[in-house]
Design a protein around this nucleic acid. Structure first.
Lengths: 193, 193
DNA sequence: TGGTTTCGATACGAACTAGTATCGAAACGT
DNA sequence: ACGTTTCGATACTAGTTCGTATCGAAACCA
């Protein structure tokens, strides 16, 4: 053992790689761009990660942040909290999220490692919603069958789908009215018959 | 005038280009691949379209098929018809749709022409749903405000969102139960207070 | 301090892509 | 039948990317 691998160079390269994913997207990710931004030599990058794909994988992975999971004791308040969280996300963060999302979706089609990454991001988005619905079902606020699979999965799609449609796909701003309509839909739509 | 441009070569190239978009995706579209598949010379392709992007544009455009627009006279039946249509789409067509969708979403981020194409595809998907909701509002089956913008747009997101989430994003099969839950949601969720 | 390993820099090879140039052959209009 | 234009084929330029090779300098452990 002589000189250990510089964690400094590693961190700088990884940070730059994250910036590339955010600014350019998964599809336009290149090692050369990481080199340009970080100043870290290409040789060093390949010594650390072995391939461009490994670096991309770790760069995307670090960008996946856990979503908040409100647990106030009532469905209404949980949903309101989630809605407010969505409304409070700055525009530039939304743009970045959309870029990452689109790149992972496109990349996951023929790249299994990207597909796994996309699945992980996707699960992270669904997890808190599923928890909210399960608790609401236990409290009797919604039909019990929407609290456990397989109908839970369908219910989660119903809850998160409108947001995907509006924010990620249509690329339009989310208004307070949208959240109100969305909440009313869920309240009434998932009630027991 | 001597020899007119061969419509045969043009059609073969365009068909092959459509196949490339379907099989590989918008992101992996290359002229060389079209040449390989069609047998049409690269020179000829550039004589007809001028650039790879123009060919891609037209190839995608021809793949956008108009959606059915049920008009039975009742919201229930209109939704049921749309649901049945969705359920009846063969798996391979769904895979293809997802690939095109993902490619356009990713490509539209920094390519304005792709963005326009994506918008067109997206509008085509929303149009029949908006028409159904507007008629349902006129008949008094749902709250009147969901029949005209801007709440109509929100309502459309609520209706199509779950399908986007399940089919295009999660890449999971659509079951009859899903359609039932979805229909109940819309019926109850969009009712007048 | 000495030996080993990583570092950055530069250059390079291989593969792929957009688009152009060239050329003989074939097809079409007149 | 003749002239014009498109056709396919091939080669080419230029640019990009991944990944490797090389090398002197610097950093670290013992």
């Amino acid at each position: 053992m002589a000189r250990p691998k510089s964690t400094e160079a590693r961190n700088e390269a990884l940070a730059a790689a994250g910036g590339v994913v955010v600014d350019i997207g998964v599809g336009g990710f290149t090692v050369d761009e990481v080199v340009r931004r970080s100043g870290v030599a290409k040789t060093t990058i390949y010594r650390h990660w072995g391939s461009a794909q490994n670096l991309l994988f770790e760069a995307v992975e670090q960008l996946i942040v856990p979503e908040p999971e409100p647990n106030t004791g009532s469905l209404e308040a949980d949903l309101r909290e989630m809605g407010d969280f969505m409304l409070g996300i700055p525009t530039d963060i939304k743009v970045r999220s959309r870029r990452i999302f689109a790149g992972l979706l496109e990349g996951s089609i023929d790249d299994p490692t990207i597909a796994e990454l996309f699945t992980r991001l996707h699960e992270e988005r669904r997890r808190p919603v599923a928890a909210i619905l399960t608790r609401a079902a236990e409290r009797g606020e919604i039909d019990a069958r929407y609290g456990v699979p397989p109908d839970l999965d369908t219910a989660v799609d119903v809850v998160v789908g409108p947001f995907f449609s509006r924010v990620l796909i249509s690329d339009e701003r989310l208004s307070e009215d949208d959240v109100d309509v969305w909440m009313a839909m869920i309240r009434r739509g998932l009630q027991a018959d």
